[in-house]
Write a protein that binds this DNA or RNA. Structure first.
Lengths: 229, 229
DNA sequence: CGGGATCCGTAAAGATACTG
DNA sequence: CAGTATCTTTACGGATCCCG
């Protein structure tokens, strides 16, 4: 079917043929967010099968959107080409439209704690945080024990690590909440202040870190978008 | 599969789930270009099966992108909702990227005379043409007899009609060329002047109409886009 | 003739297991 | 870690038919 094409010279149709197969736009989004390794991509796209991810990467490579570095059999390292980088406005169009027009209840049906934490790790802004390494532990009520606790280890110099098992460091701030509340905050559907107010979010530990949370907890790229629906 | 979703709260993924099924973006493009009837859509998307078009229209309706006017069994009349109209920038992103990065030889493999004429009909600009109705006959060499001749009947008041059988009016301008040349001009890949110069395009009839052709023959929306590949 | 619905064979995607 | 292999389910393409 991939070969039995739309047969239209229109550039919209030609681009759609490359990009509008299942998962493809999500793969590109993930690469625009900085993932380059096969398993990093899988982490950002948990429900894609490895076979299909592999196929999509090959298709994107032959379309000139990405290049694979490393020989066959070696570790692959995937990077966007100039053509791939220019897909950024297109992916942003998807995000803006989705944020504006897809009912928020629908988004909040697709809760996924590892996806949320993986996104948060990428968007943490260490600038307003202490010079030293900060450790923030998230505690999600109502989740199975293995997925309940998450640690963000923020080193202003080397970046942020995400752990789902206790890394053993002393914790500077505990964030106790439920997954739906944290996801809604992340998406800009509600605010830290409101969730703190009605008790769905509790912060304990370092006072400064707690009061500054809105400044270092980078929200989703699309959180500022005004909703229409 | 449509229901077994990506399961991601990310608005990019949620939008992609709605829009990135086969043909869907092309259907939206066609509606943004003004088609509202089932068979107008089929004309702009000749290779979609009626069953799949019907299914896509239902999906777009339940996603809130279009509304169907007319009761069940009645004539359907499909219109974009406000959410659908806001897909315009997204569809334009596809077109811009496609025009910039997809090799032109690839586009010119997908020649389709009825698609080209259907697009041209929509983009003709009657303003610089005579007040009276103008008839332009296109003669494509190398096509089977039934698809060789096309007539655009441009009435500055009521709009433009496209005919593939002789409507019987007196012809003001004859445009004799081949399909590849006309498509390349339409896409901005080359100019009328150059095609006239090397004889791949011939204009006979009304001198004024002929010399003004670049002003009234609206090109593809993406013709001004600079290519990268 | 416009606006679809049905049926069937092929092609793509999901799930899971497995390997260098 | 970075993918293949295999099997089942779902989607798509194409032809045909239906109905007002």
């Amino acid at each position: 079917m991939t070969n039995a094409s739309y047969k239209q010279f229109c550039p919209v149709a030609m681009a759609a043929e490359i990009l509008c197969t299942r998962w493809t736009v999500v793969v590109v989004r993930e690469m625009l967010c900085g993932s380059t390794r096969f398993n990093d991509l899988r982490r950002g796209i948990p429900r894609i099968s490895p076979a299909l991810l592999s196929q999509r990467l090959k298709e994107l490579e032959s379309a000139g959107v990405i290049v694979r570095k490393g020989g066959k059999g070696e570790q692959g390292d995937y990077h966007l080409t100039p053509a791939g980088l220019e897909l950024k406005p297109l992916v942003e169009s998807f995000g803006l439209w989705g944020q504006r027009w897809i009912a928020s209840e629908l988004s909040l049906e697709n809760l996924d704690v590892s996806l949320l934490m993986w996104d948060m790790r990428r968007r943490i802004n260490p600038a307003p945080m202490p010079r030293k390494t900060s450790v923030i532990q998230f505690q999600y009520s109502g989740l199975p024990a293995a997925r309940r606790n998450w640690w963000l280890v923020v080193d202003p110099k080397s970046g942020t690590d995400l752990c789902s098992v206790d890394p053993g460091h002393e914790v500077d701030l505990y964030v106790a909440t439920d997954l739906r509340t944290m996801t809604a905050i992340w998406m800009g559907l509600e605010t830290v202040r409101k969730a703190l107010g009605d008790g769905r979010l509790k912060l304990t530990g370092d006072r400064k870190l707690a009061s500054d949370i809105q400044t270092w907890l980078g929200l989703s790229l699309f959180a500022p978008t005004k909703r229409a629906a």
